[in-house]
Design a binder for these strands. Structure first.
Lengths: 147, 147
DNA sequence: CTTTTTGCAAAGCGTTTGCATTGAA
DNA sequence: TTCAATGCAAACGCTTTGCAAAAAG
């Protein structure tokens, strides 16, 4: 992790959750917070290994799961395939391409104040609320038109 | 499949998609349309085998994937674990329990006419639109209160 | 010094593939 | 008779586990 602010932020978080601060965790955290994708464990592994050649895939994967437990990242809901991780940020929503699987983030004021149905609100505790759109991304839409 | 209406409906669908009508497919279809769960391939397999002992897991799994391709079932978006299938019905939405993984269906008039953000509408083709709630189901909420 | 974390290897679980056989059209 | 669908077995990909060695607090 090059950035001092990031390092401090991360130390804070670890202390609060009773986690030890290891260079491996720092590397994973640093990568996550500066990438705007929805990487799989393998993808994170490959990138982090660039600046940290000794790290094992296993550590990366377990680190990501640990981060998910302390609420640092979300695990995306996908239709099979490898698990995808999403740094927790301001409330955003997802568009899924049914053709290539690409995920596009977006925000919408209109989706912020959705009313939760009475039945659910009465019986369940709702933590988060997300809109998921399924369709064709720009690239796949073009492909379909001119096959 | 016991029900005549179901059988006819299914024959129709197969013809339209160029699929052959096999007893195995009928069995899977019959089970799907009369269950109100979100079964995995294994679960469908175990149930169908009750009335169709020779069917293989493999056929069940491939049949479900085929059904997904012709739009007869949806593949649910989940956080890992085995794939779950959802019979396509009227527009419904999902509540996920973050503790036990239970999925609760619900409908809501309020979610029917959500406006799709301009940026997405301009660049993508949107097929479906779903709201996903994450939280604690009734049972897990109770457990948390009295641990 | 104690306890967590790491790295490695093996096991586990679910999905996918190839191919010969069977069955629908 | 033809071509798709089935059943089986093996391969595959990703995740999880167990454990000894290393590192953090």
């Amino acid at each position: 992790m090059q950035n001092q602010a990031l390092t401090d932020q991360f130390s804070e978080l670890c202390k609060k959750s009773g986690l030890k601060i290891t260079p491996q965790r720092c590397a994973v955290y640093g990568h996550l917070m500066t990438s705007r994708n929805h990487p799989t464990a393998v993808e994170v592994y490959r990138t982090v290994r660039g600046r940290f050649p000794n790290i094992s895939y296993d550590t990366v994967n377990r680190t990501l799961l640990t981060f998910a437990e302390i609420g640092l990242v979300d695990i995306l809901q996908t239709k099979g395939g490898p698990r995808r991780f999403d740094p927790v940020m301001d409330n955003h929503h997802h568009f899924y391409c049914v053709d290539c699987g690409k995920i596009i983030d977006f925000t919408s004021q209109h989706y912020e104040d959705l009313k939760i149905p009475d039945r659910i609100r009465a019986e369940c505790t709702v933590f988060t609320q997300r809109v998921v759109l399924n369709g064709l991304c720009p690239r796949c839409r073009k492909k379909k038109r001119t096959p």
